[in-house]
Design a protein around this nucleic acid. Structure first.
Lengths: 385, 385
DNA sequence: TATAACATTGAAACCGGTTTCCGTCAAGAC
DNA sequence: GTCTTGACGGAAACCGGTTTCAATGTTATA
């Protein structure tokens, strides 16, 4: 049905000029109602959709945003992308996924190749690890960019940033254990070079101190955020004489907590009866492990949605306006407007327009940082059923 | 450094015409060595990368392929995409990710909108559920397409298809349990409307019959491929009087097996001591649940890689030829060729050129179907440590 | 040696839109 | 009843490449 019509064909069919069709399609203000209707009738009748490529060339802006991620098999990444996809689905933009394996030493080349194509009008960088400095160079050269990156303090980011308050998260976890009556609470810390690991640790310390306890160096273990290091820490701990065991452990991420659970299982140590466990992240798996893991939930999907919202606002402040755009004319004609007038809202909070409101999270230098909240999810690993 | 140079600028700098630059960039055969070098020197010096959008417009083909997926939080999807991403990373194509929520009733509109943009030169449809008929319409209208879809018999697909041999998979699972000496083996079947569920069931029956056993209707349960139905089946089974219990269970997918494990845990039933369990899929989680799940592994990542390889071969048979393409001139200049001469191979099997080889899996009507092999992964849920 | 055939390369058309520039026409100002 | 002003819409330039077509210089053929 919808053969390759061009704007020229539509113009001819409607008895007007190319430029008029273009103007109608782009909702140019000074257009008479009559002309608009005449064109739109033909557009709808023939199910016309303007060629994106041509649009991109002529208009200088592609309706594409790039999303750079680590391999999708990393925990949390799919959840973030779900948030991104749900938001994007409601706009007229599309997402180009660059899933790169950061272990490949040529990754900076990959990024350069990607970006030099100038195909995307903006980039969302998700957990780009050691690629951050390289990416920031592109940002400084003018590429609109938003980062989700908890390895460094947000203050240090010159570009917009979305993340959570890890300190409060660490506090929540520890406080939960304190509330349950535990006093000897250990912490398995993430890599010190990661800011989020430091913050979680500080939250842990703060909670302890508020409860009149001083963090005990003997109860602080160093992990690497992966299950293997979790296992190592568990073995180290369980090898101690029993009276030197902690009553509870706050592990800095769920991955390491899984390692802990495995070793506990192997050695027949009951969780939470002998040791209570709290993780951090609330990965999809965490409710399925045995026992289900109490953990501090990061709203990954919401983070993705907020981040892409931010990015699109930078690229195109009107990206969610109910503009009459050709793509809407298709499908079941007539109902075209409905999907467009429903502006997407990343969460159910209705807090759009952030970039324009005075309450927007501008930093003093004008950079936008958004910090979402973590929440404690209580499961059996800290509280027996 | 790499400001927006055009092919015109390069032509001027090299003292040749636009067309010559274009020809060099596209490795047109009839080009003198001298001209080629003259142009390439400038291209490299200025780190020139031709504008993809313009290329797309003029050449009529965008270097973009679409990948349509269910939400990435579905099991297996991220793994398939990893395979896709790894393959694509080595080509000059990019992937546009359309992650749609199939529960949204407007999904056919979404697909129409996507495809009518004509932005992608091909589509890889991953587990598109009830969208299949709609997608096939687009295929028949000429959109290059590959499907990963195990809901219907491959024979019924008019389009290229990648999947596994579910029958053999079911056979492997059951055979494993038989080899361990079990005789009363139950099966929790997936939805009957899914072809893969039927196939797995048939493999189960075949293995039993080969062992001289007749499938017992009492030992056949009906699930829905989700954890909830797994729990339901488990409760139903465990509620029976003990002597009517099976010795082992082949559950048609890992998700349902998780439900089984949960209920077993609740009711204090030891696995595998009291009942052995085998799943299907080998999702990422399956090695982490307690006890780790014995399961039939589907090579998801390889499926993704094969599928995208197939698609790119349809769209552009030369997509992996070491053509001298401009994008390669950048990065660390000089080493440009290296990445191009390394043709990507989806697996370590070196079995490229499939579409050209006589051994290619053409069906009688010319359609390509690729069936990969499953493999049994033995873990503690079927064999005590 | 004249000519056909071929290898190279430049000029120009084209891909399908957006946007600038300019002419037309009608309403409001003087 | 002219003149100004602004709304409206058409013609044409432009975005940055690819590809067709034709011209040129060479080499093989007769």
């Amino acid at each position: 049905m919808d053969e390759k019509l061009t704007i020229q064909d539509i113009a001819r069919l409607a008895g007007v000029s190319k430029s008029s069709v273009s103007r109608v399609l782009n909702n140019y203000p000074a257009i008479s109602q009559e002309l608009r209707e005449r064109v739109m009738r033909v557009v709808r009748e023939y199910n016309f959709v303007p060629n994106v490529t041509a649009r991109g060339l002529a208009g200088g802006k592609t309706r594409l945003v790039g999303v750079l991620t680590p391999p999708l098999t990393w925990p949390a990444v799919p959840e973030m992308l779900r948030g991104v996809a749900e938001y994007i689905e409601r706009t007229s933009y599309e997402m180009v996924l660059y899933s790169v394996n950061f272990e490949n030493p040529t990754h900076t080349d990959v990024v350069d190749r990607i970006l030099s194509l100038r195909m995307v009008s903006g980039l969302l960088a998700i957990l780009p690890c050691d690629l951050t400095p390289h990416l920031l160079k592109h940002f400084e050269r003018g590429l609109p960019m938003v980062m989700i990156n908890d390895q460094e303090p947000p203050e240090r980011f010159p570009c917009p940033w979305v993340g959570v308050d890890n300190r409060t998260g660490g506090y929540q976890a520890t406080r939960h254990l304190l509330d349950l009556g535990y006093r000897r609470i250990a912490h398995v810390m993430g890599p010190k070079r990661y800011y989020c690991a430091q913050e979680r640790y500080e939250g842990y310390c703060q909670a302890l101190r508020e409860a009149g306890l001083e963090p005990d160096p003997e109860l602080l273990l160093q992990g690497e955020f992966d299950p293997a290091s979790g296992r190592r820490c568990a073995r180290e701990l369980f090898a101690r004489e029993r009276k030197r065991w902690p009553e509870a452990i706050f592990v800095a991420n769920d991955q390491m907590a899984y390692g802990f659970l495995e070793v506990a299982e192997e050695q027949g140590i009951q969780i939470p009866q002998e040791i209570a466990l709290v993780g951090f992240d609330d990965n999809l798996v965490s409710s399925h492990v045995r026992p289900p893991l109490t953990t501090v939930r990061q709203p990954f999907s919401q983070m993705g949605a907020k981040a892409i919202e931010l990015l699109l606002k930078m690229v195109d402040p009107d990206h969610l306006l109910p503009r009459v755009r050709a793509a809407e004319g298709m499908g079941n004609a007539g109902a075209g407007m409905t999907s467009a007038t429903t502006a997407p809202s990343s969460a159910a909070d209705g807090s759009d327009h952030q970039l324009r409101e005075p309450s927007a999270p501008y930093r003093s230098d004008g950079t936008i940082h958004i910090q979402l909240e973590t929440s404690l999810v209580v499961r059996a690993s800290s509280v027996p059923a």
